[in-house]
């Protein structure tokens, strides 16, 4: 589904990604771990099309199509979803209005009519229930005054509504309490199918206890320096990153 080849990217002439290779097939879950500042969020943002980074080498393809020149909304229309590490606030725009706009803009891009209000409402109710969301959040301004955990749950609610092909979850677990973590992770699992794929960026094994990764990658200093199966995450949890740094040295 997603192929990243020798991806180099920089900002203000500072190279942040230094040659990333990653292949994600439909039906797979990939976990990306790595120390602070390694470039995990940068990679996620670049896949999603954030324009402030300059891709200096390499390419990104989604289902065989090079998407590296596409605008972020076009990538979204093709099924790329990013759950942000730090979701932004949009005052005065309710969660419902926002997601409605997102869905209808995506439909418009595909030449479809707006989703009938009735269907939209039904879907909103279903997905809010899936994530055990208090429905009064839906009429609040997007992320405004939301607690850290509420923001993250709202990200996954949007993912549930948009049903993306490729979902990238950037530290969705941080900020979630123990119960919320379980609810959100179960939500993600329910949305998983053999036709979509998930990239989970996390620092902790606890999320991976719920969302079982097929592959675990360690991103360090702009490169994927180690890949393995689910056991790699356990090993990192136990030993930290020092042994990898030593291996590299």
């Amino acid at each position: 589904m997603l192929h990243i080849q020798n991806l180099h990217a920089s900002i203000d002439d500072k190279e942040i990604l230094k040659g990333i290779d990653l292949n994600v097939k439909a039906g797979e879950v990939h976990a990306i771990m790595g120390p602070n500042g390694a470039g995990k969020s940068t990679m996620a943002n670049i896949i999603a099309g954030k324009e402030e980074y300059e891709i200096t080498q390499g390419n990104i393809t989604l289902e065989g199509e090079d998407i590296s020149e596409l605008a972020p909304e076009e990538r979204a229309h093709k099924g790329v979803f990013l759950s942000f590490q730090y979701p932004v606030e949009i005052p005065g725009v309710t969660v419902t209005n926002f997601i409605k706009t997102a869905i209808n803009e995506t439909r418009k891009a595909k030449g479809l009519e707006d989703m009938p209000a009735k269907d939209m409402l039904k879907m909103i109710r279903e997905k809010a229930a899936l994530l055990e969301m208090d429905r009064k959040f839906l009429s609040r301004s997007l992320n405004q005054g939301f607690s850290g955990g509420e923001k993250k749950r709202n990200e996954i609610f949007q993912m549930a509504m948009l049903e993306p092909k490729l979902a990238i979850l950037d530290e969705t677990d941080s900020g979630l309490d123990i119960d919320a973590l379980r609810i959100v992770a179960n939500g993600v699992n329910k949305l998983k199918s053999k036709n979509n794929a998930v990239i989970v960026i996390t620092h902790y094994q606890r999320l991976l206890d719920y969302i079982k990764p097929d592959f675990v990658h360690v991103l360090y200093d702009g490169k994927i320096v180690k890949s393995g199966d689910a056991s790699l995450a356990l090993e990192l949890e136990e030993k930290g990153y020092d042994w990898i740094k030593k291996e590299l040295a």
Partner: peptide
């Protein structure tokens, strides 16, 4: 910029 990117990412130009 962040607000715009957030919207873009959700398919909103």
């Amino acid at each position: 910029e962040d607000q715009l990117f957030y919207c873009n990412q959700r398919g909103i130009d």
